[in-house]
Design a protein around this nucleic acid. Structure first.
Length: 227
DNA sequence: AATTACGTCAACCGCCACCAC
DNA sequence: AGTGGTGGCGGTTGACGTAAT
């Protein structure tokens, strides 16, 4: 409390901050965010660092639009779990909870509005997507944390959804589509650092490693920054 | 060309769970 | 068992880009 808090930065991250964060995450792992926030010299909170890493800098992130397969998967999982975004995201490789949440909000809202119109008698029927197997649950539970578990009135939808498309099938689909499309895992920054967990055992060294990342020696830095 | 409306998405906030002490 | 610190999660906001007028 008496500690005079340095003003924390907020808002969009700069490229320099990204580089710095990645450097320290590769050094210390992606767990101790508060520590990383402190030692990195970034004027960001641990939470902010974590968010940036998880939603943007993580090497495994898949960029680009949600595919129909993923969309289907989101629908399936949302019908099952409701707004458990992180849980859903874990089942969709390369997608973050934030991404899925945003996707759901923007796309499902539209669908919900259409559905409402339809319900109020205004003839406007555009299907959710030609590949969507079931939109009943998503519309019904749109925006609330329903989920299907334990909700009798929705069991029909769940059953219908599962009947139409099993999770296994969805996974197969995704694998196939990814194989065929050969989708690139394209994180905005391609980091060459080894993610070496052994670094974690170097607690004693941590304080000695508090240095500013040598930007010049980062091959990816120049590469990315020139873009 | 200027303005408005709309869509998208990165980032913040508040709450909660977990863990170490 | 109680407490404080930290990370994770879901909800929400606001900036920015683009389409429509």
């Amino acid at each position: 409390m008496m500690e005079k808090e340095e003003a924390m930065r907020k808002g969009p991250w700069t490229e320099e901050e990204d580089v710095q964060l990645v450097f320290y995450v590769n050094l210390f792992g992606d767990r101790r965010w508060d520590f990383i926030a402190k030692v990195s010299g970034l004027k960001r909170t641990g939470k902010s660092c974590r968010l940036r890493w998880v939603n943007y800098l993580h090497p495994g992130l898949k960029r680009g639009k949600i595919t129909p397969h993923e969309e289907r998967l989101v629908l399936q999982l949302h019908s099952k779990w409701g707004n458990r975004w992180s849980r859903i995201a874990r089942k969709i490789p390369g997608r973050t909870d934030n991404e899925i949440k945003n996707y759901w909000r923007t796309h499902m809202r539209k669908k919900a509005q259409e559905q409402k119109k339809k319900a109020t008698g205004i003839p406007h029927a555009s299907s959710f997507s030609s590949s969507s197997s079931s939109s009943c649950s998503s519309i019904a539970s749109f925006y609330d944390t329903g989920g299907m578990e334990g909700q009798n009135n929705n069991n029909k939808c769940k059953a219908a959804a599962e009947e139409v498309y099993s999770i296994d099938e969805i996974w197969k689909d995704i694998e196939l589509s990814e194989e065929s499309s050969n989708f690139p895992i394209t994180s905005p920054l391609v980091w060459d650092f080894p993610t070496n967990d052994s670094l974690w055992s170097h607690d004693d060294h941590e304080s000695k490693m508090l240095m500013t990342p040598p930007y010049d020696s980062f091959p990816f830095y120049n590469h990315h920054m020139s873009g």
